[in-house]
Amino acid sequence: MSGTRALLEVQDLQIDIVSAKHRHNVVENVSFTIDHGETFGLVGESGCGKSITALAMIGLLRSPLVISSGSIRFRDRELRGLPERELRKLRGNRIAMIFQEPMTALNPVSPVGRQIAEMFVLHQGATWHEAERKAVEALASVQVPAPEQRVKSYPHEMSGGMRQRIMIAIALACKPDLLIADEPTTALDVTVQAEILKLMKELCSARGTAVLMISHDLGVIAKMCRNVGIMYAGHLVEQRPVEAIFRSPSHPYTNGLLNSLPRLGSRGIHGRKRLQEITGVVPSISAFPAGCRFQPRCERASALCATTQPDQADLGDEGYVRCFHHG
């Protein structure tokens, strides 16, 4: 988009589920770019393909999921088709990832200090002795109290928020260029969520780490991101700067989603209003409509929508929408 080369450029990504008999499309025509140090949000409901898109970025898709077409360029290098050996050098080192449930992502039988130290040994060739010293620093940087003692703790001895801090320490250990955060705070209480988001924001902006933030929670996205992509049934239906999404949502799905949320404070001012519903349900992967995938639930839908997929329409604010009847 801008003159300088973006950190991550995803072009026309298509991911399918392939079996002997069937081929179902999961993600189609997904394009976005993330600049150095930028936080980009990917929002959508369960099954919309946002997590699969993230896994594709680091070459973690496994059969039956395959990337059928498109390109993923990271620092001007094509990741698609890169041999596993090369990908391994990138994963954890240049591109790191944190997941929703830290307990399943951490090794339950290894002290957390060792799990952090591993990063320095694997990617920076440090000795274990040196690495364990760095692990204490890493723990201190994610504001874990008494890091010298905590390095010896096991994951089950920690609270959910602490575990997610450990995950962040591991992910940011090698100062990656890109951090992929897949629902990093969904399993946490709101007050802990607020602390973790603040920590992520501070650490990433201090180190210039770009973030691909995946969430179903528009509140989290609004707090963290500069640009947002809204996904619906495998399509990126709208991509805008975050203020634009909330001020003037363009796609009927985005609009419906925002109107369906109870707004904090609005009842005090306007009284209780009935929430606007989006009728119907998300189509299943085996039965995506031929045209626009939101068309069966859309109130603006016309005959054209049922047969033809809308192209990107530029919106003038560096954003685009995929809808014939946007606005």
């Binding site: 909330f246 949320l261 005090g268």
Partner: peptide, 24 residues
């Protein structure tokens, strides 16, 4: 919601990531 008194209640309400509050 309008006049929370206990520090914990205030903390809870302040922690809600409200998508609209950030911009409107």
């Amino acid at each position: 919601f309008g006049n929370p008194a206990h520090p914990y209640t205030r903390r809870l309400i302040a922690a809600i990531p409200d998508p609209f509050a950030a911009f409107t």
